[in-house]
C-alpha cells in the first residue's frame, strides 16, 4: 500500500521506456513532463535505464535509450512496449477524483470509469471495489455539475437562469464556460457572459434550467484564473473591506477558517476584516450566522444588515 521510494521510481521507469518507444524524438523537457520529473532527474533515469538488461548482460542485452540533439530515442524494445496495467490503488485514485464531478449515468465520465474498470487486472478488481467504498468525495448537492463539466471540456456555449437568492431575482444568461472551480466546497463556474460582455463567476447551486447549446468556441489563453477568488467566490473588482466580530461561541471555529488573519479579543470574540464586493453577499453571509456575527465597520454595512434582519422579522 505504501510505495517505497524504489517502487515509485520503478513505476516511472516502466512508463518511461514505453513512452519513448511510442513517441520517439520528443525533447528531453517534453519527456520529463510526461514522466513527471525534472529535466535533471530524467537524465539520471536515462542513465539507469541503460544499465537494465538481462543475463548474460552483453552489450546487446541492454535497453538502448539515448539522447541526441536534446531529443530522446529508444531502440524499440519488445519487452517494454506498453506500461504495466493500472494497480488497484491507481484505479481507486482515478475513480475517486472522477467522483468529485458527480458523474451522471451515461455521461462521458461514467462511461470512462466503466472502461477503466475493464482494464484493471483481475486480482486488482476486488481490491479496487473495496477501496473505492473507503473514499467518498461525492457532494450531495445534485448541482448541474456533470453537465457543466461537459460544457467546459467541450467548449460549448450554455444558457441558464441565474438566481439571485437574497433578492429573489432570476436572470437568463448565455455564457462561454472557462473553468469550473471548487472553493471551500462550493462549485463555481467562471465564464464569459455574453449579455454583460465580461467575465463572471456563477455559483453552481444558483444555476437553474441549464441548457447546452450546439455552439462551440475557441478558448482564449490557458484557462487559468488571473484574479484571486475572495470569500464570496467572486473575483475582486472593487476592494471593499468589511470588519466583522464573531461571538466567543463561534470564535474558535472561525479562527480555524481565518487563521492568522483573525484577531482574538480579550472577551474571547474574534475580529476579522474580509474583502466583500457586494451588498447582497454581505447580508447573506452575516445573516447566516444568526446573530453570532456582528459587522463593526463600515457604517453602511451595519445599516444594510439591520434593514435585512428587520425585513425578515416583519415577514415572519
Amino acid at each position: 500500500m505504501t510505495p517505497t521510494a524504489a517502487s515509485d521510481r520503478l513505476r516511472r521507469l516502466l512508463f518511461l521506456v514505453p513512452y519513448v518507444s511510442k513517441h520517439p524524438g520528443r525533447t528531453v523537457d517534453e519527456v520529463a513532463q510526461a514522466v513527471g520529473c525534472t529535466r535533471n532527474e530524467l537524465i539520471e533515469e536515462l542513465d539507469l535505464v541503460t544499465l537494465v538488461g538481462h543475463p548474460p548482460f552483453q552489450p546487446d542485452d541492454f535497453v538502448d535509450i539515448y539522447v541526441e540533439d536534446d531529443r530522446v530515442f529508444v531502440q524499440f524494445d519488445q519487452r517494454l512496449s506498453a506500461p504495466p496495467r493500472l494497480t488497484a490503488a491507481e484505479g481507486v485514485a482515478l475513480a475517486s477524483a472522477a467522483a468529485i464531478l458527480e458523474p451522471q449515468k451515461e455521461s462521458a465520465l461514467s462511461v470512462a470509469l466503466q472502461k477503466l474498470e475493464r482494464v484493471l487486472p483481475e486480482e486488482a478488481a476486488s481490491r479496487y471495489r473495496e477501496l473505492t467504498r473507503r473514499l467518498d468525495v461525492g457532494a450531495r448537492g445534485a448541482d448541474a455539475l456533470s453537465e457543466l463539466t461537459r460544457a467546459v471540456v467541450e467548449h460549448r456555449e450554455i444558457e441558464f437562469d441565474y438566481v439571485g437568492v437574497a433578492r429573489g431575482e432570476r436572470e437568463q444568461r448565455r455564457v462561454r464556460p472557462i473553468e469550473l472551480l471548487s472553493h471551500r466546497g462550493q462549485w463555481y463556474l467562471r465564464a464569459f457572459c455574453l449579455a454583460r460582455n465580461g467575465e463572471r463567476l456563477f455559483r453552481s447551486d444558483r444555476i437553474a434550467s441549464l441548457k447546452l447549446t450546439e455552439t462551440t468556441f475557441t478558448p482564449e489563453g490557458d484557462g487559468k484564473a488571473e484574479r484571486p477568488v475572495t470569500e464570496t467566490g467572486k473575483s475582486v473588482r472593487e476592494r471593499v473591506e468589511v470588519t466583522v466580530r464573531f461571538s466567543p461561541a463561534l470564535a474558535p471555529y472561525q479562527q480555524e477558517r481565518f487563521g492568522d488573519a483573525g484577531r482574538l479579543e480579550g472577551d474571547g470574540s474574534l475580529t476579522v476584516t474580509v474583502p466583500g464586493d457586494s451588498e447582497s453577499w454581505l447580508v447573506r453571509w452575516i445573516l447566516s450566522f444568526g446573530g453570532e456575527a456582528r459587522v463593526v465597520a463600515p457604517e453602511w454595512a451595519i445599516r444594510v444588515v439591520a434593514q435585512a434582519a428587520a425585513a425578515s422579522l416583519q415577514s415572519l
Binding site: P84, R85, L94, L109, V111, A112, K115, L116, V119, T149
Partner: peptide
C-alpha cells in the same frame, strides 16, 4: 502485464483527465 488500450473517446479522456 501490459496495459491494454482502454478505448477512451477524446471527450471521455478529457473529462477523466480534468477530474484527475
Amino acid at each position: 502485464y501490459y496495459l491494454p488500450e482502454p478505448g477512451f473517446s477524446a471527450d471521455e479522456l478529457a473529462v477523466l483527465y480534468a477530474a484527475g
